[in-house]
């Protein structure tokens, strides 16, 4: 064995010991190339999801039914933008620039959560998104607070503090509609019908079909499996639906003896179709992001020139 190989092996052993002892890995620490790659992919995908997720909700800012709901929705969407920034910053510590992440997104080389490729058809959808989509995201993010990579973990802690308002505002919308007219109740139920399955898909394929998960769990990037997190989400969400008179659109849903739920089959063909670009809004979401980015280019160029002038000025 070469000296280099011995050193590498020693570094790997130190890395694995840290993971074993729940010591966070920090940006300057040695890490296996696959660990870095997995994090770059996972954190940037998470960041893109936060930012693309602003679009379906942004659709309803000008049409929110009251000033109260408009202010709340604006604050929520601003939070999502902030969450994207925390995550981009965490991802950048792995040696890839912000500009590069954005350009991978625009080139279609990076993914975001498939759920944001569904349209928001009416106000009840804003309720369903906050309650279900944010609810699913929280379930995942609470678990990720314990991820082994320091910057990712710290971003998750910050995000989790802000997310519970998001879920409550969504549930409140659904509750108020269920207390309202027959038409409002129908709208709420229709929104649940359309968002339930895409929300369950947010946790990703079944553990048996998730090839990257095993390594990610071994390295403690992910702390719980896709199926375990999905089960947790289902178990807490169904009683919330029942409490306000909503029915989860799953004829095969069964209550197990231990109080957990057994759900029907998820339509994975739909999941993969949407992931691969064939959802109802994929093109629209990406084009909108590219347009907003291009429309803002002159601001960045001007700011960069200004910065250069100030730097030169400072030298005299």
């Amino acid at each position: 064995m070469t000296v280099q190989a011995v050193i590498e092996q020693e570094k790997l052993a130190q890395f694995e010991a840290k993971i074993e002892n729940e010591i966070k890995i920090e940006p300057n620490d040695w890490m296996p190339e696959d660990y870095r790659k997995h994090l770059i992919r996972q954190i940037s995908q998470h960041a893109h999801s936060e930012v693309i997720g602003m679009q379906p909700e942004g659709n309803w800012i000008t049409r929110a039914p009251s000033l109260r709901s408009k202010k709340i929705l604006l604050a929520k969407i601003q939070d999502e933008g902030g969450h994207g920034l925390y995550l981009y910053a965490a991802a950048e510590t792995l040696g890839v620039s912000r500009e590069q992440f954005i350009s991978w997104l625009h080139e279609g080389k990076a993914k975001y959560a498939s759920v944001f490729n569904y349209p928001t058809l009416n106000w009840a959808d804003i309720g369903a998104i906050g309650w279900l989509v944010d609810g699913a995201a929280i379930t995942n993010q609470v678990s990720l607070q314990r991820t082994s990579y320091g910057p990712y973990s710290r971003a998750m802690v910050r995000i989790c503090k802000e997310e519970s308002f998001h879920q409550r505002q969504g549930y409140e919308i659904m509750w108020r509609m269920m207390e309202g007219t027959k038409d409002q109740q129908r709208m709420a139920q229709d929104a649940l019908n359309r968002w339930w399955w895409p929300s369950l898909m947010m946790f990703g394929p079944h553990d048996t079909d998730s090839p990257r998960s095993e390594k990610a769990i071994q390295w403690k990037i992910k702390r719980e499996s896709n199926d375990r997190l999905r089960e947790k989400f289902i178990n807490k969400t169904i009683p919330q639906a029942e409490l306000i008179g909503l029915k989860v659109p799953d004829p095969e849903l069964r209550l197990n003896e231990d109080g957990t739920y057994q759900h029907g089959d998820i339509n994975w063909d739909e999941f993969y179709a949407v992931i691969n670009g064939n959802g109802p809004c994929n093109k629209q979401r990406l084009q909108h992001h590219i347009k907003a980015h291009q429309d803002g280019a002159w601001v960045r160029e001007t700011a960069a020139i200004h910065q250069q002038k100030m730097n030169n000025h400072g030298k005299h």
Binding site: E92, V96, S97, R98, E99, Q100, I102, S103, H293, A297, R300, E301, A303, A304, Q307
Partner: peptide, 12 residues
């Protein structure tokens, strides 16, 4: 790795 001319300022 860089394939973009875009710039987003300095890191603070």
């Amino acid at each position: 790795m860089e394939s973009t001319n875009d710039q987003q300022g300095e890191l603070y």
